[in-house]
Simulated scan of single mutants.
Amino acid sequence: MRRYTLATLVAAATLAGLSAPQAIAAASPTSQDRTFLVQAHQGNLAEIAAGKDAGKHATTVCVKRAGQTWVHDHTKLDASVRKLADKTHTRLPSSPSAAQQKALQAVQSKAGSSAYDEAWLKAQAAAHRKTLAAIDQEIKHGTNSGVVAAARTARPMVAMHLDMVRDGVCHQAPHSTHHAS
C-alpha cells in the first residue's frame, strides 16, 4: 500500500481546485442553514401550540387526534433542531413568530365551534405548505450536512401532516386505525 505524504495530498487538492479553508467552509453552517434552523424551531413551537389548542378546542375527534400527532411529532423534530442549533452556535428564539402567533389567535377566536375546526385545518395546511417550502430550500441550498440531513428527515413527516389537513379536510394519519369524525 502506498503512503501519501501530507504535501502530496495538499498538492492534489490544490490541483483539483480545493483548499483546506474551502473544504472547512463547506461544512460550516451558512446563513441559509441558520435561517432554516430558526424557522424550523419557530414552526415546531407553533405546531406544538396549535396541537395542544386543538386538543382543548376542536369539536371533531379527527382534529383532536391531528393535534395530538402535531404535539408528538413536532416535539420530536424540535429536539433535533435544538441539538443542531447548539452544535452550529445558532441562537433560537423562545417563541413562534408574530405571524404564527397571530394565526393561532385567529383560530382560537373560534374555539368550541365547528368554525374552529375548519379554521384550524386551513391554518395548518398553510403552515405545513410553508414548512415544506423551507425544507426543500434547505435541502437544495444548505451546506451543513447535519442541517440538510435533518431537513430530509423532517420532510416525510411534514408531508404526512399536510396530507392530513389538505384542502381544509381532516384525514387520519396513514398509520392510524381510527376514522375521522
Rank of each mutant, 00 (worst) to 15 (best):
M1A: 15
R2E: 08
R3V: 02
T5R: 15
A11G: 10
A16K: 09
G17C: 07
G17L: 04
L18C: 00
Q22I: 02
Q22G: 09
A23E: 03
A25I: 00
A25Q: 11
A26K: 04
A27Q: 12
A27S: 10
S31K: 10
S31T: 02
D33W: 10
D33A: 09
R34W: 02
T35G: 11
F36R: 02
F36V: 00
L37K: 03
L37E: 05
V38W: 06
H41T: 02
L45T: 03
A46W: 04
A49C: 02
A49Y: 01
A49T: 00
G51I: 01
K52P: 00
D53K: 11
G55Q: 08
A58I: 06
C62L: 05
C62D: 07
V63P: 05
K64M: 03
Q68T: 12
Q68A: 15
V71H: 10
D73F: 09
H74V: 01
T75A: 07
D78S: 14
A79C: 01
V81H: 01
V81L: 12
R82A: 15
K83F: 07
L84P: 04
L84N: 06
A85R: 03
D86L: 11
K87M: 13
K87A: 14
R91W: 05
L92E: 05
L92F: 07
L92W: 00
P93H: 03
P93K: 10
S95G: 08
S95M: 14
P96K: 10
S97I: 00
A98L: 14
Q100P: 07
A103R: 15
L104N: 05
Q108C: 05
Q108R: 14
G112T: 01
S114A: 13
S114I: 01
S114D: 12
A115V: 08
Y116K: 01
D117S: 04
D117K: 05
W120R: 01
W120K: 01
K122G: 03
K122H: 12
A127D: 08
H128F: 08
K130C: 00
T131N: 06
L132H: 09
A134S: 14
A134K: 07
A134E: 07
I135C: 13
D136E: 15
D136K: 15
D136L: 08
D136H: 14
T143H: 14
T143Y: 11
N144V: 03
G146I: 00
V148F: 09
A149Q: 12
A149V: 06
A150R: 02
A150D: 03
A151S: 05
R152Q: 14
R152Y: 01
T153D: 12
M157L: 15
V158E: 06
M160I: 04
M160H: 08
H161R: 06
L162Q: 11
L162V: 00
D163W: 04
M164G: 10
R166Q: 15
D167I: 04
D167A: 15
H171E: 06
Q172R: 11
A173H: 14
P174L: 09
H175S: 15
H175T: 12
H175G: 10
T177V: 11
H179G: 02
